[in-house]
Write a protein that binds this DNA or RNA. Sequence first.
DNA 1: GGCCGTCCATGAAAAAAGTTCATTATCAGC
DNA 2: GCTGATAATGAACTTTTTTCATGGACGGCC
Lengths: 307, 307
Amino acid sequence: MSSLLELRHLRTLTALRDAGNLSRAAELLNLTQSALSHQIKLLESVYGGVLFERKSTPPRFTAIGARLLELSDLLLPRVDAAELDLARLAAGTAGQLRIAVECHTCFDWLMPAMDAFRDRWPEVEMDIVSGFNPDPVGLIHQDRADFAVISEPDDIVRGVDFHPLFRFEIVAILARGHSLVDKPWLEAADFAGETLITYPVSDEMLDVVRQVLIPAGITVQRRSTELTVALLQLVASGRGIAALPLWAVKSYLDRGYVRSCPIGPGGLHGSLYGACASQLSTSPYVTDFVRLMRENCFLSLPGITLL
Amino acid sequence: MSSLLELRHLRTLTALRDAGNLSRAAELLNLTQSALSHQIKLLESVYGGVLFERKSTPPRFTAIGARLLELSDLLLPRVDAAELDLARLAAGTAGQLRIAVECHTCFDWLMPAMDAFRDRWPEVEMDIVSGFNPDPVGLIHQDRADFAVISEPDDIVRGVDFHPLFRFEIVAILARGHSLVDKPWLEAADFAGETLITYPVSDEMLDVVRQVLIPAGITVQRRSTELTVALLQLVASGRGIAALPLWAVKSYLDRGYVRSCPIGPGGLHGSLYGACASQLSTSPYVTDFVRLMRENCFLSLPGITLL
DNA sequence: GGCCGTCCATGAAAAAAGTTCATTATCAGC
DNA sequence: GCTGATAATGAACTTTTTTCATGGACGGCC
């Protein structure tokens, strides 16, 4: 009888457009692909026609789908703004967010997320805490930071909550003519005798070292540099190999500047979590920050998976 | 985790404002008062505060409630417009709607509803069929009308669907000094010896005659006039009594121009239905027309109940 | 003050959605 | 013709929404 269209459906439509396909859209919305498929099927039966062409990537929307999408674009930002206002009404707008970061590459996506956050919560004071800290969770305990981006949630820590962010693959980066380049994957032994080119951080903060080389009892020479480009230049010119997040080097790989190779049969993966004092953890601006990071990253970093 | 606000909630909020209280809002939305109460309770727990003051009529909204209402006002018209577009896409915009009307007072609310309809479906040709027809359903069968407003659905008719509209009370209208004015209700016998002032229609179309006087075997003098004001003037000046829908005379009663009295212990009630050829019955513009009539009437006619 | 009538709240039960699971279908790229 | 990725599907399951039945609060009215 009366309309059964709900915001949920519009959220699905925009997620579909933004994510590029139903499965990714489902991941973005924390639902299953099946759920979205059913949702869309329902809409299609109500409006008497398909909403988008299934085979094409990115999805091509029909007139019906496009009209609904147009509606979504009109509505969802308003809803978001209203909920932001309501969150402010409930909890006030002030606060601080001192962010500690453990990993180098994080800045690539953290900055855009912080920019988006600043737009939404202008009154929250944001800071990056010092350089790269080996124990960011410690900083939270000492109340020297409010939020930390870390790679593995330490065992359950009293008073600190962990928010899963995303998971990504770490690949070995090789010069184009490198002898290992045609292996289906690299094993620990392949690193022996190579120079490992890294960011200037301590051993235990490098996933390859911690998860691959140390378990295999292999030590390698290290050479370090600050910038990703510089690091890749060293690899490309044959000074050694690197191990970096796939998303961080994807564009160089696509252009053929360097080559990549999975590490281990299933690939080597890293995960990122946000850590935060339990009391702050439920504050609207923190949950909003976490959401922003997840969504921004999922849409902008290729090949990552939400946790 | 993610937002649970849905259009349903916004529809409830605006219905609450428009209808004036939760029970009426529920009626407007075809839900129970309880459902709405639960909905609002949920919103209040999510946003951490009440949405409106319960005791006041009309409802006074809090900052939270007002912000949500503001959102509703922004969103719901857009949703409506989109669904209208989609209905057009699905079924085309053309069509005709020849409307037959059985009762006199119907025009009071039918005209505004038709105006609203014309705005939404400019391509649908609307007409009022002739004067007051004693058998509007017959006109539909003869394909001389597409839609009829009738007081009781004839027994199930093949090929014609009935859409319940609303129910209202018919009260007796008396001059201020009339001897019957203090009775708790009028019975059939009270009409004996009175002149019944009516619109110029045949006996069987008058609910009082059909449902009260004929069953009691009472006949009365009749005098008729076209206009409601004229009719009330005759009553006020002691020429007789009338029986009219409460909503049609409410404003005169409030001003004390005439008095009213229920007819029978439980009051006399009339109901209105829309009748329509079965094939047309599901066409988007017809269902839209029915919805418009129900909603407009419920909001503008005092004391009516939706069926 | 007691009695109604109206309006809203509430908890439990019922109904209706919405979602997931497990599996199958489709199709593009090798 | 495989294989991997994407979407569809039906049934089971879960969650949400709604109703039902009832009670409390308030205001008007003899």
